[in-house]
Simulated scan of single mutants.
Amino acid sequence: MPPLLNIIALATFAASLSTRAMDPVLPHVAEDMSVTVATAAGLSAVTAFSFAIVQPLIGAAADIFGKGRLMLVCLVLLGISNVAGALCTSYAALFVTRIFAGIASGGVFPVALGMASDLVPVPQRQVAIGRTIAGTMGGNLLGASFAGVIGDLVGWRGVLVVLGVLVLAVSIAVGLGFQRGDAIATSRRMKLTDLRQGYRQIFSNPNARVCYSAVFIEGCCVLGLFPYVAAFLFELGETRLSIAGIVIAGFAVGGLFYTMTVSRFLALLGVRGMMISGAMLVAAQIVAVGLGPDWRIQLLSFVAMGWGFYMLHGCLQVFASQLSEQARATALSLHSFFFYMGQTAGPVAYGLSLSWAGKFPTLAVNALVIAILGLVCAWLLVGKAASRLR
C-alpha cells in the first residue's frame, strides 16, 4: 500500500475526532444552555446536516482544485470552529459553530476516500479504504471516550477546546506530509465543463440509487441512535458522562476490528456475505440495546454493532467509488451526502418515535429495517462490479 495512505488516514483521524465527541456531553450542554436533551441533540443533527449539504459542492471542488489542498483548508476550519464553540454563551451561537464544524468535516472524509481510491486499483481498494476508515474509527474512538472523561473533569467547553487544538496540530503534520508526498501538486483534477458529464455518469449507473438509498437508511437507523445513548444510560441510573463516551466509543472499536479483519472476511464471505452478515449483526445489537442491559453489556453490543456496520458500509463505499472513474470524489461526496442526511433525519425520527412508541419498539423497528437492508443490497448490487470485488 502507498505510504501516502498513512497521511490520508491521519487527516481522517483528525476530522473524525469531533464527529461523536458531543454525544456523551449532551445532557450537560442541555443543562448549561437551559434546553431539553432532545433540543441539544439538534447539535449532532445540524453537524450531520451541514456535512451532508455541502457534499455535492465539496466533491466538485475537490475534483477541480485538488483533493489535498481542500482537505487542509477544511482541517483548519474545523479546528477554529471547535475552539469558537467553547466560547459560546448561547445555544444559537453554539449551533452555528457546529454548522461550520460539519462543513469542515465534510471536506475531509469523502475527499480522503477519493484520494485513497485514486492510489490503488479495484482489487485492493476495499483494503485501502479500510485503512482510511481505521483513521476515522481511531478518531471516533478517542473523540467519544475522551470527550466523556474530559466532560466529567472540566465540562463540555473543555472538550471543544482540546479537540480544536488537536485538530489544528494535526493539520500542520498532514500539510507537511502532503508536501513530501507531492499530494497537493499531483492530485488529479477535472475541468468545470466535465462536471455535468460526471454527474450524468454517476446517476446513469443503476448501483447509484441502491448505494445512496442504503447509506441514507444506515445513517438514520444506526447513527441516529447515538445522541440518545447518554439519556438511555441516565434512565438506568448511570449518569457518568465518561461511561456514555465509552459505550459510544465501542462502535469505533468494532470499526477498528473491521479494518483489521476485512481482507480475511472478504475472502471468506465474499461481498454479498459481508453485507448480509454485517446487517444481521447490527440488527441483533440494536435489539440488545433496546432491552436496556447494564452499560458493560451495551458496550459489547456497540463493539459488535460497529463491526457489523462497517462490514455492510465498507462494501457500499467500494461500490460508490466505482460509480464514476472521472468524478470519483464527486461520487463519494454524494455517498457521504446521503449518509449524513440520514444522520440528520435519524435523531429527529428517533425523538418522535421514542415519545410516541417508546424505547424498545423504536429500536426493534430500526433493527428490522437494517436486517432487510442488508438482504436487499446483497440482492441488488450484482453484476461485473460485484464479481471484481470478490
Rank of each mutant, 00 (worst) to 15 (best):
N6S: 14
N6G: 10
A9L: 04
A9Y: 00
L10P: 09
L10F: 07
A15P: 08
S16C: 09
L17Q: 04
T19D: 07
P24Q: 04
V25Q: 04
L26V: 02
H28S: 15
A30R: 05
S34R: 15
V37S: 11
A40K: 01
A40I: 02
A41R: 07
S50A: 13
A52M: 01
I58R: 07
A61P: 14
F65L: 13
L70T: 05
L72S: 03
V73F: 11
L78V: 07
L78S: 11
G79D: 01
S81K: 02
G85N: 08
Y91S: 08
A93T: 07
V96N: 10
F100W: 11
A101G: 12
G102I: 03
I103T: 07
A104I: 03
G106D: 11
P110M: 09
V111F: 01
A112D: 04
G114Q: 00
M115D: 02
S117E: 02
V120H: 04
V120C: 10
V120N: 06
P121C: 10
P121E: 04
V122H: 13
R125A: 01
T132S: 14
L141I: 05
L141S: 04
G143S: 00
G148N: 05
V149E: 05
V149C: 06
I150C: 09
D152T: 08
V154H: 07
V159T: 10
V161D: 02
V162K: 14
L168T: 03
A169I: 09
D182I: 10
I184K: 03
T186N: 12
M190D: 10
D194G: 14
Q197W: 13
R200W: 03
F203I: 12
C211R: 14
Y212D: 08
Y212N: 10
Y212K: 03
Y212W: 04
V215Y: 02
I217H: 06
E218S: 14
C221T: 12
C221V: 08
G224C: 10
F226C: 08
V229T: 10
G237P: 04
E238K: 12
E238D: 07
I243H: 06
G245C: 09
A252I: 07
G254E: 09
G254V: 08
L256F: 06
F257Y: 14
T259L: 05
L269N: 12
A279K: 01
M280L: 15
L281H: 05
A284I: 08
I286V: 14
V289Q: 05
G292I: 13
P293H: 09
L299W: 06
S301V: 13
Y310F: 11
M311G: 14
A331M: 09
S333N: 08
S333V: 04
S336Y: 11
F337M: 11
F339P: 10
M341Y: 02
G342D: 06
Q343I: 12
G346Q: 01
G346N: 01
P347T: 09
S355I: 01
A357R: 00
P361H: 02
A378V: 03
W379I: 12
S387T: 15
S387W: 09
R388C: 15
